[in-house]
Computed example of a mutant assay.
Amino acid sequence: MTEQLSDSVLLAFLKDQLSVQDWSTARLRPLPVNYTSRFWRLDTPERIFVVKEFFPDNEENPLYPTLPDQEAEALTFLARYDLAPALEIYSHSPVGTPLLVYGYGLPKNDEIDVGEAADLIGRIAALREPVPGHQVVPAGFHEVLEGGDAMLAAIPESPKAVNLKRLRPADDLVKRRAVERTLVHRSFCLGTIQSTPEGARMIDWQFAGYGDPVEDICGFVSPGLLKLYGLHPLVAYAEDMFLKHYPNQDTVERFLEERSAYHWRLAAYCLFRHETLGQINAPAARAYGRALEEEVDLLLRLRVK
């Protein structure tokens, strides 16, 4: 078992690695943790740093594998385009775990406008220079549905899985077509956008890959994903404003046609996590259960339209 990285050992490591002029008022504090990573925030007079310690081998996730190398590549690449904060450190911690640090200046405020969020993710989708080493992820209506099918097949004894299958969008609802893959964040929401003095930047790139930008629009408007990030679902006018400001309206049209597949797959994922975490992490299982309810409610509303 890996030795746990203590706050004092981490702070000593950061003092040796980061170019901070004044450590006298620096404050390191832990942030919420999850199965595959721990987080800290380091406040200094000049900059804020976020520290992420990864445990990529803790679990096999059918939808969101933890890939720290990808996050490091994304930060290095996207900072050049003013789309992500700067990567400060990517190495092994004093206890041997992958450790990543990104930093940004002190923001004037933490508010993110949905129009700014739409512009940011639209600019990322428009990038044509490939990011090194990124995974290829399921893209398009039919591949996404197949991913949801596989997750439900992994919990065959679940009564809720039977009910969720009844909400599955039909394959013939959308014609099969080729998808022009672009860089997608895959957990894009207000919780993964950081305000900086230079504008909004995207964080949490460990799940990213090459897929369909429709997935990121679905993520932003997903009530289940927002629930998992501890945020409230978007009100209708905020969703409308986001879609109006998204730079590529052809992608918005495909989102309106194909969104049910992405929401259904996320519901399947939440159910899978709810069922498989129930005996080992009851609080997490309950959180996924609440997110599942949000996605199912949305699927029912979409059916009525």
Rank of each mutant, 00 (worst) to 15 (best):
F39Y: 12
A282N: 00
T276D: 05
Y35W: 05
L75A: 12
G191E: 09
K175T: 12
Q4D: 08
G230F: 07
R47S: 05
F49P: 02
E129Y: 00
P223M: 01
Y35H: 10
D297T: 14
Y210L: 14
I280A: 06
Q135V: 05
P94W: 04
E143D: 14
A284W: 06
Q194C: 12
L164F: 05
L298V: 06
L183S: 07
R166P: 02
V162C: 03
L42P: 08
S24M: 04
E3N: 10
G148A: 05
P159N: 02
R27F: 12
L243A: 09
Q194W: 04
L87R: 14
K52N: 03
E257L: 15
C218M: 09
E88S: 14
T44Y: 06
A84R: 08
T76D: 12
Y64T: 11
P68C: 04
I48P: 00
Q249P: 10
E143S: 13
L83P: 05
H134F: 10
A178E: 14
D69T: 07
V136T: 13
H92Q: 15
T76H: 11
L106R: 15
T76P: 01
K160M: 11
P197S: 11
E253M: 08
E180K: 12
V235D: 12
S187H: 07
Y262H: 13
A282W: 06
I121W: 07
N163W: 05
R128I: 05
Y64K: 06
L78E: 13
P233S: 09
K244H: 14
C218L: 02
D171L: 11
A238E: 15
L266Y: 13
A150D: 13
I217D: 00
A118Y: 06
L302Y: 12
D216S: 08
R80E: 14
K165L: 15
V296S: 05
K244Q: 12
P98K: 04
G211W: 04
E215Y: 07
L145S: 04
F242H: 05
R80F: 03
R166C: 03
W264P: 07
L42A: 07
T44D: 09
